[in-house]
Amino acid sequence: MKYIFKAKGHDNVTSKHRSTFEVTQDREMNLAGDCIVGVSSNASLKDLPPQMKDAIRDENTEIHVILETENASDEIIGYGSPSLTLDHPTDMVCRRSDYTCSRTLMIRADKAAVDLNPDLVEDLKSGKTLKVTIKI
């Protein structure tokens, strides 16, 4: 199962957060949002297909998130949880921890914003288009 959507980078992307990364539908961000790697997303958690949401709510489901720009890519692997509501209207957050809230897509991720490919982060800082693929 696969879901693909687009977002954009932003000149305030710093990718310094050590425990999460986020893609949001918000159009703007400030430097305090050091987990945000994509803005102006054309999808959020509420948009995921019901069948995918059901799979993500299984703690044994391995979730792959692939982030791609024209020059670079990275893949992050994490897990689902029965605690995930997957209904936030604007945000999608991947977490290293087991913490869940309405913004959480996956937990126990193997990477956070600070771990992402530096070439990918540079593309995002310059506002390049971000392709996000969620694979179950």
Rank of each mutant, 00 (worst) to 15 (best):
T69E: 05
E59G: 07
D74M: 05
D47E: 00
L31W: 05
P82V: 04
M52H: 10
L86C: 00
R96P: 04
H88L: 03
N42W: 13
M29L: 13
R57V: 02
V65C: 01
G33Y: 12
S81I: 01
T69Q: 11
A32Y: 13
N60Y: 10
V93D: 10
D74I: 05
L67P: 04
G78F: 06
T14A: 07
M29D: 02
H17K: 07
D34G: 02
P89W: 04
K16A: 12
L86F: 03
G38D: 02
S81C: 07
K16L: 15
D34P: 03
T69C: 10
N42P: 12
R57M: 09
T90Y: 09
I56E: 02
P82T: 03
T69G: 09
L86N: 00
V65P: 00
M92L: 15
M92V: 14
H88A: 05
N71M: 05
D87R: 11
D98I: 08
S19H: 14
E75G: 06
S41R: 02
V13K: 05
T14N: 12
H64P: 00
L48A: 03
Y79A: 01
Y79G: 02
I36E: 00
I77S: 11
M92K: 12
R57T: 05
H17Y: 09
T61C: 11
R18N: 13
D98R: 10
V39D: 00
D47C: 00
K46A: 15
T85G: 07
I77H: 15
T24E: 01
T85H: 13
G33A: 15
L86H: 01
I63M: 02
R27V: 05
S44C: 15
D26A: 14
A55N: 04
L84N: 12
T90I: 09
T69Y: 11
E75P: 04
G80W: 07
Q51H: 12
Q25A: 00
D74F: 08
I63E: 01
S44E: 01
I56D: 03
I66P: 00
E70N: 11
E75H: 01
P89D: 09
K16H: 09
I66Y: 05
I76K: 08
R95V: 06
G33N: 14
L67Q: 09
T61K: 13
T85Q: 15
V23M: 05
I77M: 12
M29C: 08
P50A: 12
E68F: 01
S41C: 06
N60R: 14
D11S: 13
R95F: 13
V13Q: 10
G78L: 07
K16W: 08
A55M: 10
L45F: 02
D34R: 13
L67T: 04
